[in-house]
Amino acid sequence: MSDPFPDEVDEALWDEACRRAEAVREFLKHRPGKMTAADVALLATEVETSRATAYRLIKLFRAGGTVMSLVDRKRGRPEGHRVLDDKREEIIRTTINRHYLTRNRPTVSQLVRDVQTNCISAGLKRPHRRTIKARLEEIEPQRRAKRRGETEIVKQTQAVPGVFAASRPLQVVQVDHTKADIFVVDEETRQPIGRPWLTLAMDVCSRMVTGFYLTMDAPSRLSTRGVAP
């Protein structure tokens, strides 16, 4: 399986990989020759990992020399991946719609028993309780509450009517942050450093951009104060 491109990597994993790359780069710069176990232990403390992992990061960086080589690969089953066959998935879906999403408000335990009983009757292996609950949690909360007649939950999940508006320019200015859809590279090594943060100040009345701030640092109160008109 080929490695993902930088824009396909989770932002949190990418930011952590950039931090690790900087630490390993500085570590190797000051230790061109042999390194001691104590040196590696210091690196492990800096990147908040075990000494064995620190050795692995050094090896990966020496072999690849890129931030991408240090991206932590997520373990376990890919998000959204399902292991049940279509027949059992259909039984779970049908049982939820016919027996759980009703005004009688049966419990989750009752739903689990019904699903497992229906699977056994069809000659299929019964799914685990966690799997059934996971399918249940995929249902939009407001839809589930309406079908079950849970009025309090419906009220809590409904949007509050009304609008937020301003009657004149600069009466209200909103500030928001986003990561720019570009990668900044080192001017010498041409290796990717990361994606910059863009902070925009937007006038609510005119919907015009009144200022912006571009930085490699994560959003903070300094990002708001530094917005340039």
Results as ranks from 00 to 15, higher is better:
V185P: 00
M216F: 04
V185C: 14
V9S: 08
S206M: 07
P32I: 13
V227D: 03
D85Y: 00
Q171L: 03
A17W: 03
T36D: 07
T94I: 01
R126E: 14
G162D: 04
R113Y: 10
P161E: 10
T210P: 01
L222S: 08
D10L: 12
R144A: 14
T151D: 15
Y55V: 01
A12R: 11
R51L: 00
R195G: 04
T53L: 01
P6A: 12
A134N: 10
R93C: 00
D176A: 06
P219H: 06
T224C: 12
G162S: 02
K125R: 13
R88P: 02
G64L: 04
A23C: 14
D176P: 05
I120L: 09
S109I: 07
I193T: 04
A201T: 05
V172C: 02
R31Q: 03
R190I: 00
M1Y: 14
I182R: 06
Q116A: 13
V204T: 07
T224G: 12
K146H: 14
V40G: 10
R82M: 00
R221G: 13
S121T: 10
Q110M: 12
R103W: 13
V71F: 09
D15R: 10
I96Y: 00
G211T: 05
K59V: 03
R77E: 03
E137R: 13
K87H: 13
P219C: 08
V115C: 05
T210N: 07
A122I: 01
P229R: 05
A145H: 07
E138S: 10
P106A: 12
L198C: 07
K34N: 11
R56W: 08
E8R: 12
R225A: 14
P141M: 12
A21T: 05
A52V: 01
V9E: 12
I58S: 04
R126C: 02
A180T: 05
P192D: 03
I58F: 07
G194L: 00
T53I: 02
S206R: 02
